[in-house]
Structure formats: C-alpha cells, structure tokens
Simulated assay, not measured.
Amino acid sequence: MTTDRAAIAATVDRLIDEVSGWPHVTTGEHRFGGTEFRVGPREIGHVHGWGMLDIAYLKRLRDVLVDARETGSHHLLTESGWTTEYIESPEEYDHARWLLRLSYLYHVNVLQKTPAGAEEFADVDVESELAAMALTDDIRAAFDRR
C-alpha cells in the first residue's frame, strides 16, 4: 500500500479541527508530540501528524473494543486502558472520529457524576449520543461498567 503522507496529514488536521470544536474539549501540544485532546482534567487522546492516534478508555471498555477489532492495544502500554489506531488514509477518518467520540462520551459521563461536573457538563446528552452510535451490547455494557 502506498502511503499518501499529505492525505494523512490533511485527515489528521480535519480530525483536530472537529474534535477541538466539541463542547468542553481543549487542545494543546502533547508531551510526546502531536495534539492532545482534554475534557476538564482528563485526556481523551492525542494524535500525531503522521496518523498515530492514541485514545484513553476505561480498561474494560478498551478490552471490549480490542476484542471486537474496533482498535488495537496501545503500541507501548499494552496492558493499560489506552489504544493505538493508525490513520493510514482519509477513508479511516470516520472510524477514528467514532473512537475518539466514544472516549469523549465516556470521560464526560464520568465527570457528570462529580459534584462540579454535574453542572459543568450538563449540556452533553451522553445517553442520546450513545444511542445514535449504535454500539454493540458488549461495548455498551463495558461503557456502563456493568
């Protein structure tokens, strides 16, 4: 497969532009390079310009996503809740966005259960967004920590 680095970089830029526009998401430079996405004090993931996307989940949710072949284990932290996805073409944008949105919703959901976060993140309707994502029962159960 021939890699079109310019197309990958454009896809990464598109992802950064979209995710940075989600409610309560802040971006910054990641300590290992690339762009980091945060919701409140929590990092939901970071992306490198060459297409490597690392995403933070609860370990149980990460395990279900890896088992379902939605993503892979983190390239270094294989036993953590982190995953690594490689964006190798513009066609992979929607899936990368889906994975990041799931992490975003998971972290917002956790923050909504805190006294400060209940009010701060009340504008994000996690339940309706999850329903629209058409998650498998296994992914939904892992998301809900059941």
Rank of each mutant, 00 (worst) to 15 (best):
E43S: 09
G51N: 14
P41Q: 10
E129D: 11
D67M: 06
V108L: 03
T114G: 08
L99W: 04
G45L: 11
R101Q: 14
F37Y: 00
D54V: 03
L15A: 03
V124D: 01
G45K: 11
A118C: 12
E120L: 14
D13L: 09
L58D: 14
G117S: 14
D137A: 15
E92Y: 00
L61K: 13
L135F: 14
D63E: 12
A132H: 06
G51I: 14
M1L: 09
W82Q: 04
S103F: 04
T84N: 05
Y57W: 00
L102G: 12
E119H: 15
I8Y: 15
A56I: 00
W82V: 04
D17A: 14
R69K: 04
A142C: 15
E120C: 08
E18M: 07
S80F: 12
H48M: 04
E127G: 05
H46N: 07
D67Q: 12
T27F: 03
V39Q: 01
L99P: 01
S103A: 15
S103L: 06
R140T: 06
E92A: 12
D63W: 08
M1S: 12
V12N: 01
E127L: 04
G34Q: 01
M133L: 14
I87L: 13
D13W: 07
R69C: 04
D67C: 01
G45I: 13
E85R: 15
H74F: 06
Y93T: 10
L53M: 12
I44C: 01
D17W: 00
V39Y: 03
E129T: 04
L130R: 05
A122L: 11
G21N: 12
Y104F: 05
V126G: 00
G34A: 00
A116T: 15
V66T: 07
A96G: 12
R145I: 08
E18C: 07
M133N: 05
D13F: 01
D54Q: 09
I55Q: 02
E85T: 15
V64G: 02
L105H: 08
N109E: 11
D13T: 12
S103C: 02
T3G: 01
H75M: 12
R14V: 03
T3A: 09
P115D: 06
L58E: 13
E79W: 11
R60V: 06
G51D: 07
W50H: 15
V108A: 02
D138L: 03
A141W: 06
E120P: 03
D4R: 10
Y86H: 15
L100G: 02
F37W: 00
R101F: 07
E92G: 13
F32L: 12
E92K: 13
D144Q: 13
S128P: 00
V25A: 00
T136F: 10
T78K: 15
G21S: 13
M1T: 10
L135R: 10
S80Q: 13
H75G: 08
R14T: 11
T136W: 07
R140Q: 05
F121Q: 03
E119D: 13
G81L: 05
S89K: 07
W82D: 02
E70F: 04
W50A: 10
L99F: 03
E85I: 02
L102T: 11
P41A: 09
S89D: 12
V19L: 09
V124K: 00
A118K: 15
E88K: 12
D13I: 09
M1Y: 10
F32M: 11
R101L: 11
L65H: 09
